[in-house]
Design a protein around this nucleic acid. Structure first.
Length: 522
RNA sequence: GGUGCUAUCGUCUAGCGGUUAGGACAAAAGAUUCUCAAUCUUUAAACCGGGGUUCGAUUCCCCGUAGCACUACCA
């Protein structure tokens, strides 16, 4: 029977969701949607010491912002089906709980199963003892060659083991790996990967100290119980994939084992190593979807949302970092991605993170955005710069936005491009003055003022005809006059076409600025 | 050190035995304009090295090299 596609995104709440994790979530989501399957969000909080408050909420909020819908599990929400859990971190689905720390009883049962079947054993070696072993023996590994020299249920009598446990001694449960077997992992992206079991160590599956399993055990048990069909995760998991295969086998679940797909890593832009959480602020770009406030350290990390990115741009950018369809198409909506995505077109090699291209994507989506919406995006920016937006007709602001949007990558950049529309220049750019403001400029501007004062028709056509006619008659340099005029209005040699500026400013303001400039620059 | 994965312009990538090795970002030049952008046009820019297999390898295989990942009672 063909099983319904079910995938999961399973982050651990140890901080903000990293952009590489976001891409993993995205690929899972695209795959699920394409196959009409389910997207599950599971929280892997089996390391009680690394838990960070607020991380779970952050993950859910980030996925919501990006439009990556969760069908089942923590924070399930789904636009299309209209289902929502009652709270941000609520759970939805009949295979829960979806937070591993709430699944202790389930894990107990499976740890026992492995112990009973002889696939696992109890070990009492303390971290200090293991540390000592590693120092003594060069490449010490807890495995078939060494386990009989250690303190565990293989080397002790049942009575000794029970006595230690009853006395409250802390222990772990280790997976007993049979050496010298070639374990085959079939990866949807990389093909068949073979690893010999001898290089695997007897992994800790459960620790009594916090009564929680480790990732490996919890992961297999949960994926099986939640009927996950495809495990799509980062390449850093590839080396432990054979261990997971062995676990499925030990549990007797080999026939329903999910298929694996190990995604290439996102690498640092300058070369060495995978992109890390610290790279962002060091290199001047966000590595998190949303701004993150670490309550413990008090640090704030920048996010794409706060940097002015549109979620569509982030999705598009991320999707193409490691996946590409045949052909030259670069702009993809989420729906187009769902239609076109395929795991066998995911690259095998890691992708260096190219932030510049990310900006370009945002520019594309900004250009595509409706001017009315863009204007709404821009109003808060104006307010933040002390502009009382309500004294301007919305149509005027919209016109300015339309005029200037092609010049910027982000809405926030609109301000520096068009602030002169709202604020008259009080000082003038030195470089522009040196190049464009000549000895005769004050006199010419005075003449221009006199020319414009009686002018009633303030349309671009009329002004152009009038001013150009006057320049021609006087045999002035067009560039010289127009640039001086521009400096009066803008404060520098930049901006859109001059008649666009006069049009927005209106006659009174235009003349006032010319007068001010003459008196200041004479 | 061990094991595994990977390898096309600076970057993301197309290519799936025969191509002038294509596109995009970034870069440079030109056009346009009163300016700055934008835009358009153009340019420069790559198959890691060595062996095979083959009539023919960027493409398939092997070796080397390099990069990356893993090697925890973290995920």
């Amino acid at each position: 029977m063909e099983r319904k596609v079910r995938v999961r995104f399973a982050p651990s709440p140890t901080g903000a969701l990293h952009i590489g994790g976001v891409r993993t979530a995205l690929y899972n989501y695209l795959f699920a949607r394409q196959h009409g399957g389910d997207m599950i969000l599971r929280i892997e909080d089996t390391d009680s010491t690394r838990f960070v408050e607020g991380a779970e909420e952050y993950i859910i909020e980030a996925l919501q912002w990006l439009g990556i819908e969760i069908d089942e599990g923590i924070g399930a929400w789904n636009k299309k089906q209209g289902q929502l859990t009652d709270s941000l971190c609520g759970q939805l689905g009949d295979k829960g709980p979806y937070r591993q720390s709430e699944r202790r009883a389930i894990y107990h049962q499976y740890v026992k199963q492995l112990l009973d079947s002889g696939n696992a054993y109890i070990a009492f070696d303390t971290p200090a003892e293991l540390e000592q072993k590693r120092e003594q023996i060069k490449n010490f590994q807890y495995d078939a060659t060494t386990r009989l020299q250690m303190r565990n249920s293989l080397t002790m009598t049942k009575e000794e083991v029970d006595a230690l446990i009853n006395a409250g001694t802390q222990y772990v449960v280790r997976f007993k790996i049979e050496p010298n077997e070639d374990v085959h992992v079939n990866d949807l992206i990389r093909g068949e990967v073979v690893i010999n079991s001898s290089i695997l160590d007897d992994k800790v599956l459960y620790k009594s100290a916090d009564d929680l399993p480790t990732y490996h055990l919890a992961n297999i048990v949960d994926d099986h119980l939640m009927e996950v069909t495809h495990v799509i995760r980062g390449e850093e998991w590839l080396p432990s994939a054979p261990l997971h295969v062995l676990l499925y086998r030990a549990f007797g679940w080999a026939d329903t084992m999910p298929q694996f797909a190990h995604l290439p890593l996102l690498l640092k832009p300058e070369g060495n190593g995978k992109l890390s959480k610290r790279d962002g602020d060091r290199l001047g770009f966000p590595v998190f979807p949303l701004e993150f406030h670490d309550k413990k350290t008090g640090t704030v990390s920048s996010g794409y949302r706060e940097s002015g990115y549109y979620p569509e741009a982030v999705i598009n950018f991320l999707a193409l970092l490691g996946w590409h369809q045949t052909g030259d198409k670069e702009l993809y909506s989420m729906d187009e991605l769902i239609a076109d995505f395929s795991l066998d077109r995911v690259s095998k090699a890691g992708a260096k993170f190219d932030y510049e291209k990310g900006k370009w994507f945002n520019h594309q989506y900004l250009m595509l955005r409706d001017n009315k919406l863009l204007t709404q995006d821009f109003l808060p920016v104006l307010s933040a710069h002390g502009i009382a937006t309500d004294i301007y007709p919305l149509a005027t602001i919209e016109h300015i936005v339309e005029l200037m949007k092609e010049r910027v990558n982000f809405v926030s950049e609109l301000w520096e491009q068009c602030n002169f529309f709202f604020v008259a220049p009080t000082e003038y750019d030195e470089k522009s003055l040196r190049k464009r403001w000549k000895e005769e400029s004050p006199r010419q501007m005075q003449e221009l003022l006199e020319l414009l004062e009686p002018q009633d028709d303030w349309s671009a056509e009329a002004l152009d005809e009038l001013v150009m006619g006057w320049i021609a008659k006087k045999e002035y340099g067009v560039g010289l006059v127009m640039n001086a005029f521009r400096i009066c209005l803008v404060g520098a040699a930049r901006g859109p076409h001059i008649w666009e500026i006069t049009n927005v400013l209106g006659k009174q303001e235009t003349l006032r600025r010319v007068r001010d400039a003459i008196s200041r620059l004479a």
